[in-house]
Simulated assay, not measured.
Amino acid sequence: MVPVEVLGVRQQQDQEIVVVLLDAAAELAVPIVIGAREASAIAMAQAGVTTPRPMTHDLLRDLLGAVGVDLDRVEIVALDGGIFFAELVLSTGVRLDSRASDAIALAVRTGSPVLCSAEVVASAGVEVVDLAQQREVEKFRDFLDHVQPEDFTTGGGPVEPSPDDTPP
């Protein structure tokens, strides 16, 4: 199991809603397709929004507190046929099967860590690309696409090596 950060909820271009988990060590993001209600529950909890009456995930949090049980962690344990499987690990040692979206919504409300199976990260993770780095790579590719041999000469002659370029 590897710790992941709940980056947030995003709507993709194809209108699917995903919650994005980040494995910073591997620089991989795991997008999990979720429903609109679960997305709203996660986003509201991350924003610190409270409702006049408790939502289902708030009720679960409050119920755990009322019986003196903590949510130790959430584990995303498997990916099968495009479905993510999660478990709630309670302070009593009890493990409960859960949908990944519900487990994440509860973890965000309780401040509990979210862990993900390394196999799930490896199979569902997508590489995180730094936008600034991506722009630099695009500039360099453009340069390579348009560079001519004569661009490496000045005034029609060869480029003089700098003192740093001369062999010792």
Rank of each mutant, 00 (worst) to 15 (best):
M1S: 05
V2Y: 05
V4G: 00
V6R: 10
L7G: 04
G8K: 13
R10V: 15
R10W: 05
R10N: 11
E16C: 13
V20H: 01
D23S: 12
D23R: 09
A24V: 13
A25Y: 08
A25N: 11
L28G: 01
L28F: 01
V30G: 04
I32N: 08
I34L: 10
G35S: 10
G35W: 04
A36R: 14
A39W: 07
A41L: 15
A41S: 13
I42H: 06
Q46T: 03
G48D: 05
G48H: 03
R53H: 07
R53K: 09
M55K: 10
M55C: 02
T56K: 09
H57R: 10
H57K: 05
H57A: 01
D58L: 07
D62H: 09
G65D: 12
A66G: 04
A66P: 06
A66S: 14
V67M: 06
G68S: 08
G68H: 01
L71N: 04
D72C: 07
D72I: 06
I76S: 02
I76W: 01
I76R: 02
A78D: 15
D80M: 13
D80A: 13
G81N: 11
G81D: 11
F84A: 00
F84Q: 07
L88S: 04
L90N: 06
S91K: 08
S91D: 04
T92V: 10
T92I: 09
T92A: 02
T92D: 08
T92P: 04
V94C: 00
R95T: 12
D97P: 09
S98F: 00
S98I: 04
R99Y: 00
R99V: 01
A100Q: 01
D102G: 08
A103D: 06
A105C: 07
L106I: 12
R109K: 03
T110V: 10
G111N: 02
V114Y: 02
L115Y: 02
C116S: 06
C116H: 00
A118W: 03
E119R: 13
V120A: 00
V121N: 01
A122D: 14
S123I: 06
S123T: 15
G125H: 09
V126I: 15
E127A: 15
D130S: 12
D130H: 14
L131Y: 11
A132D: 15
Q133A: 12
V137C: 00
V137M: 11
K139M: 14
D151V: 14
T154Y: 12
T154D: 14
T154L: 13
T154E: 11
T154R: 12
G155T: 05
G156M: 13
G157C: 13
P158G: 15
V159W: 08
V159L: 14
V159F: 06
P163C: 04
P163H: 09
D164W: 15
D164S: 07
P167C: 11
